[in-house]
Design a binder for these strands. Structure first.
Lengths: 335, 335
DNA sequence: ATGAAAGCGCTAACAC
DNA sequence: GTGTTAGCGCTTTCAT
């Protein structure tokens, strides 16, 4: 049973017979301390079970060694992978992480950012699909650097780490078009959302254009982000005569696939599917789901690394980072 | 663009012509302020864009309105569901959450707890399978209440919220035994781990005993916690002549199922499987996987609620909470 | 109902 | 190499 709380830097100083400053120096690894006194201080720290009070330190130094992470939902495997990348790098640089779930509600996002600011975090990583104008405003007003991870603001004012969503969807489209499909459903989140809506649609249309296929908006579907939604939308997709689908969410993709197979369709022979996030869901199903491959962990890790530089006032050459994506061909596509 | 940082309580006080104390009172909702001055203060706060500095407040009041959450891995859907329950209730009571991943490494768990203590968190929720003696020691030494969620310490010294793991596994076993199986594989994590090892084994043996089936330790398997591990262990399980398996992890269960089906076994006709965590993985596969049902979100929520009471120095009647579990019969079992 | 003043535990000049 | 001295921005008695 170690000592409860108590011991302060003053106790240590007093015990050794030196000043607060000296103790502070050894604690902070300042070299200007004679080895012998350093040892004595260290011993006293050990004996008293002294642990620096980070709050006091934060007040005095104006650095909390804490960053804020704002994310839609910790149970969403896509975002939790990013968060893991963030956390690992954060720890590497000795930062702790204050985590907030927002469910992509702009009101809660704004509150979260303001709250983190009042807690004096040294920086913030923000994740979310739609960057509401007000949210961008709030973020810009915060007195701490902010980096977007897996998110974009349309004005590209904020530093961010992403993949090229437009290009990724375009490539996925090209893959199915090459397989002879000309009626390809595109399943997105709310269309007004940047990544899950707009960006994907742009990539989709680009591919159509290059293949000289007319855009048909009856092939555009917008759903909730879960398995049940996939089950539901599948029927509607089938009704349009589509023979392939590109989806924004892996659970939705699996829902569509399962519905199709339950209704006598063969995947991929009768219907091809490509999804976007390459989460575990795409691996455990039979067939496995072809997906755009995203370096999820790395997106988080790189964003966090960027944030450390920003917090350190280093200048950053490239603030709009695009990490490479792939196409992971699995069982829901031919070839 | 709102004001960067700056305004302090002093600025507000000065502007209105009152003392710091008065401003502090209105900020903290103390009733001893005349309505008219209160209004003036509020106005000044608005005009100056004043936001209380939580760090300073924490130092002065010795309360940070922050709790620590220690968990194995944010990307593990089982734990992230618990975390969501924790976070929602924490927000409800206006606490922020400092999150740490440990990968169940006792060294990192100890460091995490100590670090959180030095950050002066008001309380800690701890999640993890194995409560290393040293970790329990560290936890006990911390000057803040701690509640275990989905975790147990063998000495039951620490407050905790769980389901009855022994009973749950026993019931799962009874279900397959009733279906005529007498060679049932049990797949756990490291046997020395409390929940994923020991507890499950106890429940398994109890059921065997009641059914008067001899325990055969060649039916006991210990694996990593992922899909690939399931694929691998499946072959060995088959070699034992087992006709059913109880697993501790859903991904492992799906791995086993997929391997079996790929190798000509029919699930559930030839082989029945019951897993433990009832995560999304059990829903999206075909067939869906029968699982013990756990109120994951509630485990987190209840643990957090308990922690708020502890932080508030309320006495708690029951510190070892067991929430009800179920058996979710799906496609990997008959009946 | 309001103000004065003493800290909370630490860092960071600045002296010596 | 070490000590002195101000704060950091706020809460909290204790007076009034």
């Amino acid at each position: 049973m170690q000592k409860k709380n108590s011991a302060t830097i003053y106790d240590v100083a007093h015990r050794v017979g030196v000043s607060l400053a000296t103790v502070s120096r050894v604690v902070n690894g300042n070299s200007n301390v004679r080895d012998s006194t350093k040892r004595k201080v260290l011993d006293a720290i050990e004996e008293l079970g002294y642990h620096p009070n980070a709050v006091a330190r934060g007040l005095a130094s104006k650095k909390t060694t804490t960053i804020g992470v704002v994310m839609p939902d910790i149970t969403d495997v896509y975002y939790s992978e990013l968060a893991r990348g963030i956390d690992d790098v954060a720890n590497m640089y000795h930062y702790d992480v204050l985590l907030t779930n927002t469910d992509e509600d702009p009101v809660r996002e704004t509150m979260a950012v303001n709250n983190l600011a009042s807690k004096q975090v040294d920086g913030i990583i923000f994740m979310g699909n739609e960057l509401d104008h007000e949210v961008v405003n709030t973020i810009s007003g915060v007195n701490a650097p902010v980096v977007l991870a897996g998110s974009v603001d349309s004005e590209k004012k904020l530093p961010s780490v992403n993949i090229d969503y437009v290009e990724a969807i375009k490539e996925a489209m090209e893959a199915v078009i090459k397989n002879g499909h000309d009626r390809v459903a595109i399943v997105t989140g709310p269309v007004e959302h940047a990544i899950n809506g707009m960006h994907r649609l742009v990539g989709y249309k680009k591919a159509l254009e290059e293949a000289q296929i007319e855009f048909d908006d009856s092939l555009l579907f917008s759903t909730h982000q879960d398995y049940a939604a996939g089950l539901q939308v599948a029927e509607k997709i089938l009704a349009t005569g589509a023979t392939a689908a590109i989806t924004y969410d892996d659970e939705v993709a699996v829902g569509i696939m399962n519905y199709l197979r339950d209704h006598g369709k063969k995947v991929p022979e009768d219907f091809e599917i490509i999804t976007s996030n390459d989460t575990k869901f795409t691996i455990i199903t039979r067939p496995q789901v072809t997906s755009i491959g995203q370096p999820k962990y790395d997106i988080g890790a790189v964003a966090m690394r960027m944030l450390t530089k920003l917090m350190n006032n280093e200048t950053i050459e490239l603030t709009q980072v695009k990490l490479p994506h792939t196409l992971e061909r699995r069982g829901t596509t031919l070839n």
